[in-house]
């Protein structure tokens, strides 16, 4: 596999049982994602975009197929190994921010580095520097409950990229934000992608988010129906 490929999915399928009725969330998805790309996975509700993001992030396991992230095949990894992979190679931005409510913004950003074993001085410096680069230093001592949705999402982004992950996964990052805040957030993601080379994979059905991505993959009924990269090729 080329070192420029961050994510590779081959024949990935995932079926849920909902009240004894099988729901085919993913049907044999083949997908590759190059380092430094900003890709949006689009599709209507229930198309499988969140499921695809989850199996790539090791939050869920596919029923069939193989997934490789930065050269590591996820099949066969146990929960602890998956946790370590997420901790060291991935960053997550969730729809509902999912910050730790009892920690301040600075502590939330520091926390991931602490899990990685980064020393107190270094992590405090890096966390503050990250808040500064996202223009949210003034939020450092505030807890999530004292921040707006946009502010929380910025802190969530700071948390997700402070460890320099190879891949940033964002699931409906704009779902709870107004248009102005969404634009602001997307400019930030684009800046991170262009300036820091962060690979971003986002699942969305928001046209604004799609418009910021370099590549758009459309899912329907668990299968890729359109990939802008393929069109270009």
């Amino acid at each position: 596999m080329s070192s420029d490929i961050v994510v590779s999915c081959k024949g990935v399928s995932r079926t849920y049982q909902e009240e004894s009725v099988p729901v085919h969330a993913l049907r044999g998805v083949d997908f590759e994602f190059a380092r430094g790309e900003f890709v949006s996975i689009a599709g209507p509700s229930g198309s499988g975009k969140s499921t695809l993001l989850n199996v790539i992030g090791g939050l869920d396991r596919p029923d069939a197929g193989t997934i490789t992230v930065d050269g590591v095949e996820l099949n066969g990894l146990n929960e602890t190994e998956l946790s370590d992979l997420r901790l060291h190679k991935m960053g997550f931005v969730f729809q509902s921010y999912n910050l730790i409510p009892v920690l301040s913004a600075l502590e939330n950003v520091e926390f991931i580095m602490q899990l990685q074993g980064v020393g107190p001085a270094e992590r405090a410096e890096r966390a503050m520097s990250m808040l500064d680069s996202l223009d949210i230093v003034d939020l450092a001592d505030r807890r999530p409950g004292d921040m707006s949705g946009g502010q929380q999402q910025r802190v969530a982004i700071a948390r997700s990229i402070v460890t320099n992950p190879v891949l940033l996964l964002a699931d409906e990052p704009s779902a709870n934000l107004d248009s102005a805040t969404t634009e602001d957030l997307l400019q930030l993601l684009r800046r991170l992608n262009e300036e820091r080379g962060v690979s971003i994979l986002t699942a969305t059905h928001d046209p604004i988010v799609m418009s910021y991505a370099q590549r758009q993959v459309n899912l329907r009924d668990g299968a890729i129906v359109e990939d802008s990269a393929a069109k270009v090729a």
Binding site: G57, L59, E79, T80, S83, D84, L85, R86, L87, H88, M90, F92, F94, N98, I100, P101, I112, L115, R159, S160
Partner: peptide, 13 residues
């Protein structure tokens, strides 16, 4: 929810 998020961001169970 909080614990699942902590697992998601890489905290070991």
């Amino acid at each position: 929810r909080e614990f699942s998020m902590l697992k998601a961001v890489g905290m070991r169970p």
